[in-house]
Amino acid sequence: MKTMLNIALPKGRLGEKVYNMFEKAGFECPSIHENNRKLIFENAEKNVRYFWVKPSDVAIYVEHGAADIGVAGKDILLEYEPDVYELMDLDIGKCRMAVAAKKDFYDDVEKTLKVATKFTNITKNYYGKLGRDIDIIHLNGSIEIAPILGLSDVIVDIVETGTTLKENNLEVIESIVDISARLISNKSSFKFKNSLIEKLTDEISKQMEESND
């Protein structure tokens, strides 16, 4: 039996961009362009199998070895801290994790700060380092309305262009960390499919160097 390289891609625009990079690197899988609802695509000739998963699940597939490699945002890696190798910063899907508040927000340090976020772990670590007492309110979406409705003082969320914040009368008051897409690998797969993985990473670094020139 041939060794297949199993690759988990995040559904959506970022995933398609990543696939194009992989295709150029010699790991093409033409059937992926067929317009259907299939989630798994295979090209036995190139020893490669792709599957589309929810972006926040990529790290889980890779950590448990269901995928050998995958592409996940740094936000997901910081939030879930999966036990994987972080082989490469792909320099795409760039944004930042930031603290945002209403424009007239005054930070009274004597009070416990109420923070609404999807990223509880990142938030806990960030304020833990500052030694600030906080209450975390975990939300799954529409984080921006939390300060407007008085649910929280501030929010911790991903900021891409800042348009959503502006439209909701919020502004960034503190940047936490820069985010971009990372190529991650399962630790065990890295040993046993090393030549395939190294071939891929070499080709992709070449591509990235070319585009930087």
């Binding site: 448990h64 070895g65 036990d83 399962n186 630790k187 065990s188 040993k191």
Partner: peptide, 9 residues
């Protein structure tokens, strides 16, 4: 130590 087929050390 790693074993082929087991996802962690």
């Amino acid at each position: 130590g790693f074993i082929n087929g087991i996802s962690t050390g």
